[in-house]
């Protein structure tokens, strides 16, 4: 029955359904362009949101709070405490006889709790092997994007008092 068919190379169904592929793609690309522009708008709105948050950002108030007494923990020892609230866990480390440092225990990558590695003398995040310097909380290795927030300490008559926090 081939002699009944047209000489054209197009299959017969294309006569019945006059769909123009180019037209279809044309519309689809326009829709994608619209979608991309809407995505751009979304990101602009995100930037505006950050701007608004920055404009209305107030420096948090940190109360003075006793963390430990000097000599309470041994050299290379640690003590966990909550600051400024009990839910915000922090870690106090005695690095030598008269030096104490304290940092937020929340890893700046994905908020896992960091711990102090005595052998390596650094703070380590077990989730993704992010390492922080014990000296200043800066990132030594791994995915964390920022240093650990540092708790400012004061030695008042043998008592270690937390007086504030500094972003990393």
């Amino acid at each position: 029955m081939n002699w009944l068919r047209r000489a054209s190379s197009d299959p017969l169904w294309k006569d019945e359904f006059s769909i123009h592929t180019a037209d279809e793609r044309y519309v689809t690309r326009r829709q994608l362009t619209k979608f991309l522009v809407l995505t751009s708008l979304g990101m602009f709105v995100g930037n505006i949101w950050i701007l608004i948050r920055s404009a209305f950002h107030r420096a948090p108030q940190f109360p003075a709070m006793k963390v430990a007494t000097a000599g309470e923990i041994p050299v290379n020892g640690v003590k966990l405490f909550g600051y400024p609230t009990e839910k915000e866990r922090c870690i106090l480390v005695r690095t030598n006889d008269d030096r104490y440092v304290a940092y937020s225990q929340k890893c700046t990558h994905l908020s896992c709790a960091v711990y102090y590695s005595q052998e390596n003398r650094r703070l380590e995040c077990p989730c993704h092997e992010g390492f922080f310097s014990i000296e200043d909380g800066s990132v030594l290795q791994g995915p964390p994007p920022r240093a650990l927030p540092r708790v400012e300490l004061e030695n008042r008559a043998g008592n270690l008092i937390a007086i504030g926090m500094k972003e990393g």
Binding site: S40, F44, N47, I48, I50, L51, R53, S54, R146, E167
Partner: peptide, 27 residues
């Protein structure tokens, strides 16, 4: 957007303005 967010979380509040302006221009 990611740089502005990272900077905001770091406590640097001044970078949000140029980031928002450039983002608006791109939009």
């Amino acid at each position: 957007l990611s740089a502005a967010l990272e900077s905001f979380l770091k406590g640097n509040l001044t970078s949000a303005i140029p980031a928002a302006i450039f983002s608006g221009v791109i939009f």
